[in-house]
C-alpha cells in the first residue's frame, strides 16, 4: 500500500495486523492498542519495529512505554473528529515522541497541513483519494500565526 511519509509517496513497510498468527509473521506490525497493552514485551522482543494503532478516544497516557514504539497510528473514525490533533501535539511536545506519527482512517487532503503542523509525519489517506493531490496541500500556506510542532515560536516572535 502507498502512503505519504515526510511529504513523499512511499510503499508502506509496516502492516496492520489484528490476530496473533499474522503478527508473528510481520517484520513491522501495527497492532491495536489493546493488543499491545496485553503483550507488549513479547511484541517488542520479537519484532524489529512495533507500531500501535490508537483509537480516537485514547490519550498519550494510555500508551505504555511509548518511547519504544517505532510508530504510533492515530485513528480518525470521521474526518471531523479533531481529538487526534491534540493527541499528536501532546505526543510530540510533552512526551518528546520522535518516532513515526501516522494519521489513519478518514484522512483527507484538506486536513494534511493541519495534521502535519500538529506533529503527524505520515498519512494513510482514505481509500479512493488521490495521494499526489495530497502532496500539494502542504505548501498552500507560507505563513502561520501560531506556534506549532515544527516551530514553537508564534508569528509574533518571528515578525
Amino acid at each position: 500500500m502507498k502512503i505519504i511519509r515526510d511529504r513523499t509517496i512511499v510503499d508502506d513497510d509496516f502492516v496492520h495486523v489484528t490476530d496473533g498468527s499474522e503478527q508473528a509473521a510481520a517484520t513491522k506490525p501495527i497492532v491495536p492498542l489493546a493488543e499491545y497493552v496485553k503483550s507488549r514485551e513479547t511484541l517488542l522482543a520479537r519484532h524489529a519495529a512495533v507500531g500501535v494503532r490508537v483509537p480516537s478516544d485514547k490519550l498519550p497516557s494510555d500508551i505504555p512505554d511509548l518511547q519504544r514504539l517505532a510508530l504510533i497510528a492515530i485513528e480518525f473514525p470521521k474526518f471531523t473528529d479533531g481529538r487526534g490533533y491534540s493527541v499528536a501535539r501532546m505526543l510530540r511536545q510533552r512526551h518528546a515522541y520522535r518516532g513515526e506519527l501516522r494519521a489513519v482512517g478518514w484522512v483527507l487532503r484538506d486536513q494534511l497541513l493541519y495534521l502535519e503542523r500538529c506533529g503527524f509525519n505520515a498519512f494513510e489517506m482514505k481509500p479512493g483519494k488521490p495521494l499526489d493531490s495530497g502532496l500539494e496541500a502542504f505548501s498552500e500556506f507560507s505563513v502561520r500565526y501560531q506556534a506549532d510542532v515544527d516551530d514553537p515560536r508564534p508569528l509574533y516572535r518571528r515578525r
Binding site: 479533531g82 493541519y114 500556506f141
Partner: peptide
C-alpha cells in the same frame, strides 16, 4: 486582535466538537 490572529487557522482547534 491578538486572539483573532491566534485563532485564524489554528491547526489544533479546527475540528472541535
Amino acid at each position: 486582535e491578538i486572539l483573532r490572529q491566534w485563532s485564524t487557522f489554528h491547526p489544533e482547534f479546527a475540528n472541535l466538537p
